[in-house]
């Protein structure tokens, strides 16, 4: 196996083109190095992009209010970033729950989505914020793809052999919007999610939902938005009955499996409760109290 130090982004892209599918891009390596050690991945070369910090390691706000997260931005940076904390706190919460400090120091947000684990914590919040993945290749330059289409299956992503992810972009928030990420594990940290749920809630008026978005992880082969549930809420008055209805529909929609972490039955039981919990958390963040909304 070769180890290629990319000194410039072009070098990384050229190396990817030359290697034609035989190489893997290495950033933090928290997933990749284990996969190599276990023989699950056997690339002929590692293209190390860790030295491209000038190009890829920033969280920046564009003039039109979009937040651009470079491919080398670590979970630790996400957790500490003021703009993320202010606008997308669910993402900060999710990044803060990926492993411990050691993993967060080196593990990147881009790496988390490229690994495309069904239990990846950051994917649900990125989905509810309709994150866009920016991909670059030497041959075709830049292209954007919605995260929803970027992840095509369990540990499968829509990327060509000569491409790499260079950034992730989040759109500015509408007014009266809050988000939440709730995660279930046996311990308070260091958990691969037993189940996770992200929500983004925009209120259109007192007690009237503008838009509700919800996505879950560890509830099926791929993290997805639950659009049928979301549709129930658009323009509707937020009532206890509606939350119950949304929660139970979500519970029916997900297709979890039994694995060593938990049974499918538990996941079916807990996801509706997380849904309700997320509604309450979003409302609390918005400072809205709705009478009759039960805690559980």
């Amino acid at each position: 196996m070769d180890f290629i130090y990319a000194q410039k982004l072009e070098e990384a892209l050229n190396a990817l083109r030359t290697q034609a599918g035989r190489a893997k891009v290495l950033a933090g390596g928290t997933d990749l190095m284990i996969q190599i050690a276990r023989g699950e991945k056997q690339p002929q070369a590692l293209i190390f992009i860790g030295q491209l910090k000038d190009d890829l390691a920033a969280v920046s706000l564009s003039q039109d209010g979009h937040l651009n997260i470079g491919a080398l931005v670590t979970h630790r940076q996400i957790c500490a970033d003021r703009q993320v904390q202010a606008s997308y706190p669910a993402l900060a919460t999710a990044s803060a729950s990926v492993g411990g400090w050691q993993t967060q120091s080196v593990g990147t947000l881009a790496g988390n989505i490229c690994n495309a684990s069904p239990a990846a914590d950051t994917i649900p919040p990125l989905l509810v914020h309709e994150a866009v993945v920016t991909i670059q290749s030497a041959a075709r330059g830049l292209r954007d793809v919605s995260l929803e289409y970027f992840i095509t299956g369990r540990r499968q992503i829509a990327i060509e052999n000569d491409e790499m992810v260079v950034g992730i972009t989040l759109a500015p928030l509408p007014a009266d919007t809050a988000d939440a990420y709730l995660k279930v594990g046996r311990r308070k940290a260091m958990e691969v999610a037993i189940a996770g749920l992200a929500m983004r809630l925009t209120m259109a008026g007192p007690e009237i939902v503008g838009e509700l978005r919800v996505a879950t992880c560890a509830t099926g082969p791929v993290s997805r938005r639950a659009r049928e549930v979301e549709a129930l809420f658009s323009g509707q008055k937020l009532t206890d009955e509606l939350v119950t209805q949304g929660a139970s529909l979500l519970g029916r929609m997900i297709q979890p499996i039994d694995d060593t972490r938990a049974s499918a039955q538990y996941r079916k039981l807990v996801i509706p409760k997380l849904f309700r919990g997320a509604v309450l958390e979003c409302l609390a963040k918005l400072g809205i109290a709705i009478s009759g909304l039960e805690k559980s």
């Binding site: 180890f3 290495l26 390596g29 928290t30 190095m33 050690a37 590692l46 400090w101 050691q102 120091s105």
Partner: peptide, 11 residues
């Protein structure tokens, strides 16, 4: 920054 050296690429 603390890292787990067991899964940090030496290169």
């Amino acid at each position: 920054q603390p890292v787990d050296s067991c899964l940090y690429s030496a290169a």
